[in-house]
Amino acid sequence: MDRIPILRMGAFLLVTIQVDLYDRLALSLEADLVDMVHKTGARGVLIDISSVSIVDSFMGRILGNIASMTRVLDAETVVVGMQPAVAITLIELGLSLKGVHTALNVERGMTLLNDKFGQDDELAGDDADDAE
């Protein structure tokens, strides 16, 4: 079965979606991410959707779910790189991704996560590294 790779970078998890998502793939990403946050104690999750050409209501709901699920595990999710046409379509469809942090690109998304979690958390991330 296809799987979307999740990369670990310090205290954060990084996901780049580069394929057309079908429902089951999106659901397994949700489960994998929540699992990874739990296992690694990650403080932030960055999801890059710059290669995603459509986000429909199901995919939007999954992004919202990921944000809420990681939040209760004490990690923040940032969705970055949304294409303008996707943004227009999402809002007209009626989805505003409330509760999901967004940033224009990966760089700004990383800045946002870094601002949220200062030095302490980077250390916490390092500790987690050592523990492995």
Binding site: D23, I54, V55, Q83, A85, I88
Partner: peptide, 17 residues
């Protein structure tokens, strides 16, 4: 155009689901 394409494909995705 890209925006209308995106709207059409998104709508198709909703209905097919």
């Amino acid at each position: 155009g890209l925006v209308n394409q995106t709207k059409l494909i998104t709508a198709a995705s909703e209905l097919v689901r």
